[in-house]
Amino acid sequence: MDEKVRHILEILENDARATPEEIASLIDMSAQEVSQEITKLEETGIIRHYKTIVDWDLVGENYVYAVIELKVTLERNQGYQAIAERIYKFPEVRSVRLLSGNYDISLTVRGKSMKDVAFFVAEKIATLDQVQSTSTHFVLKTYKEDGVILHEPETIKKLPVSF
């Protein structure tokens, strides 16, 4: 990979709001070149999406998250893709992954309450033909999300002057 592209991706992965001007001040490219490079990265799908990680607990919006494990049976002519597509279209579903191991698919679901989530799983997911069984695990606390630690880090005191 081109070293400059790696720099741009690392900067944006860390801070999606970094402007082309800010990025240009950190690497050996002009703001216009950075802009063009980012457009290229967006068009080729290397940059998928820009998102914000929100700590909803702090604004009193107490969302409930659950991880749902699914065992599925595949039907003739239908692979995992088909069932994944049925599931990921629900806005309640935040992530869908196909896994190796004891179960097949793992979802993250967000709702307003435990009841909300439980009913969603019972009515919309468990009733799908291909779904053999579901197992719901409610999230009690999130410590780290997508590489971001969700609490104030301790600051370490270092000498202000050293050789």
Partner: peptide, 10 residues
Amino acid sequence: IISLGVGEPD
């Protein structure tokens, strides 16, 4: 103070 006076990684 803002220190650029260190000789170690931050």
